[in-house]
Design a protein around this nucleic acid. Structure first.
Length: 667
DNA sequence: ATAATAACGAGA
DNA sequence: CTCGTTATTATC
């Protein structure tokens, strides 16, 4: 069954990028286009090509009249559809991300272009009436320095860039929607990236209040292939002009992009867990840079990365003045046990956390307001129980659960009041044996229920997240990120386990603690309205001070200074190379690293880290090597490691190695 | 990946 | 010099 094919008359060569994640095959390949295929085989469409005998998916990059290939060309096997799903903007972005993260274009393309759904693609596009500009009130941005001017700049199509710290109680989704509306009204597209589905829902609800609902679309993973592709196509085809989504939406094909926004960029979920592990904020900034559009990074707290953008003058500060901050924030008290002797303060025999923070909670409940209690994620802090009878170990002062902190801490520590207990003894059976158990939010809820008999106790966390709670007395126990919004604001919040958040051996421990605290505290009424936040941590710790003073910018400043001091991102760029010791050293030996690169390690992989996938299932030790280069050496680092992976993958004897650029957690 | 092929080394 | 094995290279 040999069919005679005729090459297209005009530009018979299609240059394609095949979807092969093998580094040394990440090149362009030319194929012949037949007459029948010619109309459909336009740049950006999906095709199938016979590659080394196998049929593989590919995207057409360009049509050409000639080829530089010396051998004979094969034919495009099939044009999958005429939909040009890979726009030139997205293709340039994919190229840049692959280069920066030392990955293959195929891997990035898999993140950027969702799988096709033929039925959805065939459906006719409904004609939309001409867009109706919506009214945007820029005065809502007036609390933030040059906020109104920022919106004006967006309306004028300028490439304004800002890092914005939202005030407590601020309906951030409305503010981001207003910024998006200004851009959409000016005829351009806007994109907002948020950490999770809950934020997508919140933002979408707000967005349709500010932008014609037919032009707003929300992309997220939990949609199912058909709906997901339908909405993605709405963006591609230009119907949707304000696109909202989680991390992979940062690649969404929004045409004539005028503004890209990222909310809460300190959230770990913005880091893609699949190779080459790009971070949505970094991709967003690359994109803004490439298309010269505006950018906005927002959150209650600020990351060192955000601060670096401000310090380098790439972005402006968008923060409220001190008097406004003071008026809008709750009163923050630190429940601080250290250096406090019971001899000097006999009153402290009655538990200090219960006295001070339970007082605050009780006052809020008496004022008919809900109280938020933030506890760590399940499994985050193991508590202790008797090794013989399994009774949970309790603090002698406040009856809080005891747990073992990080290694450098002697004795057990109370999760509520932070007091140290050098020698535990079971109150029931007298045994001195201890075992670790995990006390989650549910148990904390039971305990608090006992502390406030007759009060409704609600828990939110894990797969049972509650969006809102009514303005009524209730104790709301939530894990970070799952705090329900209280209508009118909480009367008080208790932030437990401060020492557990701050004591982690992680480069982002302090930043992360402040981010979680502020996210919870932002839901509390301001001080003038009686709002109180009690945080269980030493008040002398700078991060606790930053919460008390509500100064995320100063905290990010000193965080950035600290990273400069010790040479960690974003002050430098760093690559982590994980794998069997032989494999990682082989890769680094192969790499022609820049002259100013420093090789560090090997270090232990952070606990819970996955071992690099692919190839033979390695069983040996997994080690991490680190490469550090100056801040302006990021591209050179990516390029050098990219070349090394090409060489290594061509020699197919190696064990799997994972390369991550600027990983969130360095080990 | 995997097939073709260039390179290499030991035995006859 | 040949055969058998291994390293290298190309895949349009």
């Amino acid at each position: 069954m040999t069919t005679t094919r005729q090459a297209a008359e005009h530009e018979p060569v299609a240059r394609v990028v095949p979807m092969l994640s093998v580094p040394h095959l990440d090149r362009d390949f030319d194929y012949l286009v037949s007459t029948e295929q010619s109309d459909d085989a336009q740049p950006g469409v999906r095709v199938r090509v016979r590659f080394h005998g196998r049929l593989v998916d590919a995207f057409i990059i360009e049509r050409r009249s000639d080829t530089d290939h010396v051998g004979k060309l094969g034919w495009l096997d099939r044009v999958v559809s005429a939909e040009p799903v890979l726009t030139s903007d997205v293709r340039r972005l994919v190229d840049a991300v692959a280069a920066r993260y030392a990955g293959t274009r195929a891997d990035v393309l898999r993140l950027a272009v969702p799988p096709r759904h033929a039925n959805v693609e065939k459906q006719a596009v409904a004609e939309l009436p001409a867009p109706v500009p919506t009214a945007v009130d820029p005065t809502a941005w007036a609390s933030y320095g040059r906020g109104e001017q920022f919106l004006d700049a967006l309306g004028e199509g300028r490439a304004a860039r800002a890092v914005w710290q939202a005030l407590p109680g601020e309906p951030w989704a409305d503010r981001l929607s207003e910024a998006g509306a200004v851009v959409v009204n000016s005829g351009r597209g806007a994109l907002v990236i948020v950490p999770d589905q809950r934020d997508v829902d919140t933002l979408h609800a707000a967005a349709v209040r500010h932008v014609d609902a037919a032009r707003v679309v929300a992309l997220s993973a939990g949609l199912g292939p058909a709906e997901r592709y339908r909405r993605w196509l709405a963006a591609l085809r230009g119907r949707a002009r304000l696109v909202i989504g989680t991390r992979s939406a940062v690649f969404a094909p929004v045409g004539d992009l005028g503004l890209v926004m990222v909310w809460d960029d300190g959230d770990d979920t913005l880091a893609e867990p699949r190779a080459p592990y790009p971070h949505a904020r970094e991709v967003a900034m690359l994109r803004a840079h490439q298309v010269r559009c505006a950018a906005l990074i927002g959150g209650y707290a600020r990351t060192a990365e955000g601060q670096a953008l401000v310090r380098s003058k790439w972005a402006h500060d968008l923060v409220a003045s001190r008097p406004v901050v003071r008026a809008r924030t709750p009163r923050v008290i630190a429940i601080d046990d250290s250096g406090f002797s019971q001899e000097r303060d006999p009153a402290s025999h009655t538990a200090r956390l219960p006295t001070m923070s339970l007082d605050a909670a009780r006052a809020a409940l008496n004022a008919q307001r809900p109280v938020l209690v933030q506890v760590p994620r399940r499994g985050y802090v193991p508590a202790l129980a008797c090794g013989r009878c399994r009774t949970i170990a309790r603090c002698r002062h406040c009856t809080g659960p005891m747990s073992l902190p990080e290694r450098d801490h002697a004795g057990a520590v109370c999760r509520w009041c932070g007091r140290t207990e050098p020698a535990l003894r079971c109150v029931r059976c007298g045994s001195e044996a201890v075992r670790a158990v995990v006390v989650g939010a549910r148990r904390t809820a039971e305990e608090l229920g006992r502390a406030f008999p007759g009060t409704t106790v609600v828990t939110s966390g894990g797969d049972a997240v509650i969006a809102t709670v009514p303005d009524a007395p209730a104790v709301v126990v939530a894990t970070p990120g799952a705090e329900p919004v209280a209508e009118g604001g909480y009367g008080a919040a208790l932030l437990l386990d401060g020492w557990a958040l701050l004591g982690r051996q992680d480069l982002r421990a302090a930043e992360d603690a402040l981010r979680r605290w502020m996210a919870a505290a932002a839901l509390v009424r301001h001080r003038g309205d009686g709002g109180v936040v009690a945080v269980v941590a030493e008040s002398s710790i700078p991060t606790v001070q930053a919460l008390i003073r509500w100064d995320p910018v100063a905290h990010a400043e000193s965080e950035l200074d600290a990273r400069i001091e010790v040479g960690l991102p974003p002050a430098v760029h760093m690559a982590a190379i994980d794998g069997a010791p032989a494999a990682t050293t082989a890769l680094l030996d192969t790499a022609h690293l820049p002259d100013d690169a420093q090789v560090l390690g090997p270090v232990e992989l952070p606990p819970g880290a996955r071992r690099p996938a692919g190839g033979a299932a390695a069983t040996g030790p997994v080690m991490r090597m680190l490469v550090r280069v100056p801040r302006d050496g990021g591209l050179a680092l990516g390029a050098a490691l990219r070349r090394a992976t090409v060489v290594m993958s061509a020699r197919h004897d190696q064990q799997p190695v994972r390369v991550q650029i600027d990983p969130l957690h360095i080990g």
